[in-house]
Each structure stands twice: as C-alpha cells, then as structure tokens.
Nucleic acid binder design. Structure first.
Length: 247
DNA sequence: CTGGGGATGGGGCCC
DNA sequence: AGGGCCCCATCCCCA
C-alpha cells in the first residue's frame, strides 16, 4: 500500500481517500438498511453482533445512544449500570455523569468552565520561559498533566469524567465519537470497506492497519534484520523475542 | 512465534 | 469555545 494513503488531506478536502470505502455516514452512527435491531426492538442498537435481524429502511430518528430509531419509536429503558460502575460509589459521587441520566444525584459544579469540567479539576501553573518570563499553563488535578490552553485541559479532563455513556451497556467514554465507535460494536455496522478485499471495518484506524497487510513493503522495519512488519506492535514483539540480525 | 482483527484512548487540527 | 474528525498508538485476543 502506498504511504500516500496515510498523508493528511488538505483542509478543503477533509474527507480522506476512503472514497470507495466511505458510505457517507461520517460523524453519525447510521446503521445501514437491513442491519440490526436493538434490544427494545429499535434498530441500530444491539448488545451483540451475533444476534442480527433485518430492520426497516424508513429510519428517521436518532437514539440518544447513537443508534437510529424508526418513526415514533421510543427508546428502551436504560439498563442498570454494569458492576464496574455500580460498586464505585466514590467515583459516582465524584463523577455523576457516569450515572444513567435519570439517576444523577446533583448538577455538576461548572463555575466558568462549562459543564463537565468542575473548577476543582483545574489548577493553573506558571511555566518558566526564557529570561525569567512565565507562561501560564493549566494542569489536571487528577493526573497532574499540564496543558497550554484551557480547552486542551478540558478535553483531557473528559478522559477522567467520561461523560459519554452507552445506554446499552453502560460503558462510558471521553468523547462522543468514541461512543459512536463503541456503538458500532453493538450494531455491527462496518462503514469502512477495504478496496482490495471484501473485508469491512467499524473503525477507520483498523482499516488503515488492515491496508498494511496488502502492502508489499511494511511500515515498520527491524533494524537488526531488516524484516518489515505491518504494525509497530508486531515489530516490538519481534525485537523482544530476541532478533539477532537474522530473519 | 507471528499475523491480524477488534476495541479503545488521546492529542492536534479544522470548522 | 466546542464539536467533529484526523491520525497515531496500544492492548487484547485468536488463528
């Protein structure tokens, strides 16, 4: 596979060259017609990709978990939180967004930093610059990471608060598109098809990794034996296995 | 041991 | 400023 595939496109054409692969569903978890039916009978949401049923094509609603709903269809009841969320009372009290929407104990203190980013999560530092100047930075109280901008820090804090929760299994994610990708594990939707074979993938990154398998020259090369690998992890495993320069 | 799929995390950029 | 998207990376698991 040519490396040009991985080259970032100009901003005027943000859609990468997955043209043959992209089904035009960017940014939304849109289940193709005839795919799946969810647990409450609504399509687009299903806890198991093994239990597939056809769905009608007249879809016009979006479930708040990301799946599609047919006209007039109501969402199924929210299932109880999984054990990983049920037995962490201190976490739930600290991060109420982990709770299902109807069980939130109290609003999150937002201060001037917007919802989901409590003031107590943010502290500011003055990073030293040349000539004794200092530049302000924002550090996370959960892990002490520091960022130059408040928005970057707020994005990072989402990795602690995990405000995007799957209504089907309760798993929480830091960003909506991570949740969208997760929902595809329920729906079985695979919008990214390989142009070289019949495989399709739910995630663009996984398609990219797969495309490496079609390449004669792999991306990652062992410096000892010059053998190439499609993934860094494969190269690392190869080197950890004791490559002595003989492939 | 190796190859590869599936799922997920996270920083940066653009709109 | 926030959301959406991009790319890179990692881990787990299975064949």
């Amino acid at each position: 596979m040519p490396r040009s595939f991985l080259v970032k496109k100009p901003s005027s054409t943000r859609i990468p060259n997955y043209s043959q692969l992209d089904t035009g569903t960017r940014g939304k978890c849109v289940t193709p017609p005839g795919e799946l039916r969810g647990p409450g009978g609504h399509p687009g949401c299903h806890p198991s990709s093994l239990n597939r049923l056809p769905i009608p094509t007249e879809l016009n609603g979006l479930c708040d978990c990301g799946g599609l709903l047919p006209p007039g269809h109501r969402q199924p009841p929210v299932p109880p939180a999984p054990p990983c969320l049920q037995d962490s009372g201190h976490l739930l009290s600290r991060f109420p967004l982990l709770l299902p929407p109807d069980t939130k104990a109290s609003p999150i203190p937002t201060g001037t930093h917007g919802p989901g980013t409590p003031l107590k999560d943010i502290q500011t530092l003055n990073l030293p610059l040349r000539r004794g100047l200092h530049r302000r930075s924002f550090s996370c109280r959960h892990c002490a990471r520091a960022y130059a901008s408040l928005s970057a820090l707020k994005m990072h804090i989402r990795t602690h608060t995990l405000p995007c929760q799957c209504r089907l299994c309760g798993k929480a994610f830091s960003r909506p598109w991570l949740l969208q990708g997760h929902i595809r594990t329920h729906t079985g939707e695979k919008p990214y098809a390989c142009p070289h074979c019949s495989r399709a993938f739910a995630d663009r990154s996984n398609l990219r990794a797969h495309l490496q398998t079609h390449s004669d020259v792999k991306k990652y090369r062992c410096r000892a034996c010059a053998r190439t690998f499609s993934r860094m992890s494969l190269l690392a495993r190869h080197e950890e296995g004791g490559c002595h320069g003989t492939s």
